[in-house]
Design a protein around this nucleic acid. Structure first.
Lengths: 178, 178
DNA sequence: CATCGATACATCGGAGCCGAGGTATCTCGG
DNA sequence: CCGAGATACCTCGGCTCCGATGTATCGATG
């Protein structure tokens, strides 16, 4: 998830680590702030894989900045991850939203629509949160307000996203169509 | 997150591992299915910590079942985790929803309201997903539909939860109040 | 009566992530 | 001119998690 965010932001221009830290924190931080001990090892890892290149930037800043650029292998990796997402990227909200934030870098409406359709298929499979033996429970059945709230919030979220998915898939299809 | 779910479900009665697997998958599976390689080590870990006890159940099932019971230390651990949640449990959606599912086991409306208030405080801090340098961007500004969708879905979710939080805190306060 | 699928439990390697800590420089207020 | 705070980078230990793989039994299907 972090790696995708780094690839996506670097696609929009070079940045140094601390700058990425701010951007990633803004994007995913409303849910889970990124720790330095997560970010910098990720950068190192990705540089080792050849996805990004580092150049030392002299002067200017307080501490020596190491500017990060997306390498060609990194572009390919980003494209690959967007076009054919890991199953977890489609089911886990955090990962999915991260993917969504960079889906615009996939320069192909048909492929974009394909990704949205896969998320749609996931969202449309009926989910019951609680069971009484084999029987799925309905919200009205559990007396406590917490599980009722849980269900109603989850449903509101789901409705909002489903509506958006349908509308966006339609418009992408029109853009890709004959 | 998994441990909290296991503690919570066992609070509602004993179960064997495979049964837990189903319940946990129903609760968190809409987002992130649980793998056997995650569940069984967690059970082992928690048995080692003295939170749950295992008894072999003879006969009946195909394979030998090991029934799990919540031990006293486990009850205390559950109470502790609900009453004073880890910061990550308040920010990460997955973790938060799991916590919410078992908040009813905290037998104290004032404490429950306290937990909701902490989530409220987190949700109320303004979140901007994207920045143009230092300046937070508004949804209308980024042309691509994906980030617009991301923002509108996130806001719909946030609105739904905020409304529920306020209403529920009020009613808990009335229940706890004089 | 043999095979397949579901039930049920378990282990292993590898990976990402968190939290805490550490280093160094620059700027600004007192 | 001194110290506090922001900037900027990095490492380490420990934990949880994933995915693959393995074992064994029961019931139903053909």
């Amino acid at each position: 998830m972090l790696e995708l965010a780094i690839l996506g932001f670097l696609k929009e221009g070079p940045a140094h680590g601390y700058e990425l830290r701010t951007k990633v924190a803004a994007l995913t931080g409303h849910v889970r702030p990124v720790a330095d001990g997560t970010l910098y090892p990720a950068i190192k890892r990705m540089a080792g894989a050849g996805w990004i290149t580092r150049r030392d930037e002299p002067g200017a800043a307080a501490a020596p900045r190491r500017v990060l650029y997306l390498a060609e292998a990194g572009e390919r990796e980003l494209e690959r991850r967007l076009r054919d997402p890991d199953p977890l990227d489609l089911s886990d909200e955090n990962r999915w939203f991260t993917l969504l934030a960079f889906l615009r870098h996939l320069d192909d409406p048909a492929a974009q629509a394909g990704v949205l359709r896969r998320r749609l298929a996931f969202l449309e499979q009926p989910a019951s949160f609680f069971y009484d033996g084999d029987r799925p429970m309905r919200a009205e059945e559990f007396g406590d307000p917490f599980r009722q709230g849980l269900l109603s919030i989850a449903r509101a979220t789901s409705r909002a996203e489903l509506a958006w998915l349908h509308a966006t898939i339609d418009s992408l299809d029109r853009a890709a169509g004959p």
